[in-house]
C-alpha cells in the first residue's frame, strides 16, 4: 500500500526574537518541532553565543581555560577575540565577579565592563548576572542602563527578583531571560507574572534551567519538549518565547570534564571528552527545542554548527 507521510502542523508558533544593533541576529520563529522543516517552517538557525566573564575564568577546567590565555584577563580583549578570531555570532558576558563569594564587584564596576565590551564588539551581547538573587537585581539594573540602545539580552530574572530586572530591561529596550527551575508550571507562571507587569512576551526568552549530559539532562530535555509542545499544539502564547540552553557553565564543572585520563583510563582523553560533553549536551537540547545556546569551547561550538548545517 502507498505510504502517506503522517505530517503534523500546528496552530502555534515560537516568537522570532531579534537582538543587537550593529550586527543583528534572529532566532526562533518556527511553527513546527525542532528542525521539522519537512512539515513546517524553520526560518532561523539557533544562535550560539560564546561565554566570557568579567573576571578571569579561574574555575574553568584547563581544557577550555587555556583557549583564552592572554585574553581572559580582560573582558574587552576576550570579547574582541571571540568576535574576530572565533567568528562568534554573539557574546554572552557573565558578571560572575559581582557575586559576594567571588570578587564582590559593585554594580558600577559591572556597568563599566558592559560599556567597555559593547564599545569593542559589533555582534549582540547577552548580559548575565552571577545568579545571586539580591546582587543580580542591583547589578543587572545598572548593566541594563549602561547598555541602553544596544538591544541586548538581560538575564536572568527569577521568581525572587524578576520585578526590578524586568523593569530595567523594559526601560532600556532589552530582551529578558526568565529562568525557573526545571518545571513547566513554574516556567509558565514566571512568564505570566512578567507579562502582567507589562513586559512584552515577544521579548522574552525562557530558560527552563540547563543540566549537563549525565547530570539531569533528561529533565531539561523533557521540560523543553513539553514547553515546545504547549507552544505549538495548544497555541499557548506565554509558552511561545524561544528557549535558552546555558550549556557551558553546567558542563564545565562536572567530573567528566575534569577527571584526568590517568585517573580514569576507561573514560578516554580528557580533552576530547570535555569537548564532546559540551557538544552532545548542546545538540541534545537543540533537539528538545532550545534556540539560544551559551557555550565555551570553540571546537564544541563548531561541531554543533556543523550538526545544525546537516539538519537545516
Amino acid at each position: 500500500m502507498a505510504f502517506v507521510p503522517p505530517k503534523e502542523s500546528f496552530a502555534g508558533r515560537v516568537f522570532p526574537v531579534t537582538i543587537g544593533t550593529g550586527v543583528q541576529q534572529t532566532f526562533g520563529g518556527e511553527n513546527t518541532l525542532p528542525f521539522h522543516s519537512f512539515e513546517g517552517e524553520v526560518p532561523n538557525r539557533p544562535l550560539i553565543a560564546y561565554e566570557i566573564q568579567d573576571v578571569p575564568p579561574e574555575d574553568w577546567p584547563e581544557t577550555v581555560r587555556r583557549l583564552y590565555d592572554g585574553v581572559s584577563d580582560d573582558p574587552v580583549k576576550w570579547a574582541k577575540y571571540c568576535e574576530e578570531e572565533l567568528k562568534a555570532k554573539a557574546v554572552a558576558l557573565r558578571l560572575v565577579g559581582t557575586h559576594p563569594d567571588s570578587k564582590d564587584l559593585s554594580a558600577d564596576d559591572a556597568a563599566k565592563t558592559v560599556t567597555d565590551v559593547l564599545g569593542a564588539i559589533k555582534v549582540p551581547l547577552i548580559i548575565l548576572g552571577s545568579n545571586h538573587v539580591e546582587k543580580d537585581s542591583e547589578v543587572l539594573v545598572r548593566a541594563a542602563e549602561a547598555a541602553k540602545g544596544y538591544d541586548c539580552v538581560i538575564g536572568k530574572a527569577q521568581e525572587a527578583n524578576y520585578k526590578t530586572i524586568a523593569a530595567a530591561a523594559m526601560a532600556n529596550g532589552h530582551k529578558l531571560i526568565a529562568m525557573s527551575e526545571l518545571d513547566i508550571n513554574l516556567s509558565k507562571q514566571l512568564n505570566i507574572l512578567l507579562t502582567q507587569m507589562g513586559f512584552d512576551k515577544e521579548k522574552l526568552i525562557t530558560d527552563p534551567m540547563c543540566s549537563a549530559l549525565g547530570y539531569g539532562l533528561e529533565y531539561t530535555y523533557s521540560v523543553m519538549e513539553r514547553i515546545r509542545l504547549a507552544a505549538l499544539s495548544q497555541n499557548d502564547a506565554v509558552m511561545q518565547p524561544p528557549m535558552l540552553a546555558d550549556v557551558g557553565m553546567y558542563v564545565w564543572k562536572i567530573k567528566e570534564t575534569q577527571a584526568p585520563e590517568d585517573v580514569l583510563p576507561e573514560w578516554g582523553s580528557l580533552e576530547e571528552r570535555g569537548i564532546a560533553w559540551e557538544a552532545v549536551t548542546a545538540s541534545s537540547l537543540l533537539m528538545a527545542g532550545s534556540e539560544l545556546l551559551i557555550m565555551r569551547h570553540q571546537r564544541a561550538v563548531e561541531a554543533v554548527e556543523l550538526f545544525v548545517d546537516e539538519l537545516m
Partner: peptide, 10 residues
Amino acid sequence: KWKNLALFTL
C-alpha cells in the same frame, strides 16, 4: 572511549 562514554550516557 570518550565518545562511547558520552553516547552511553545520553
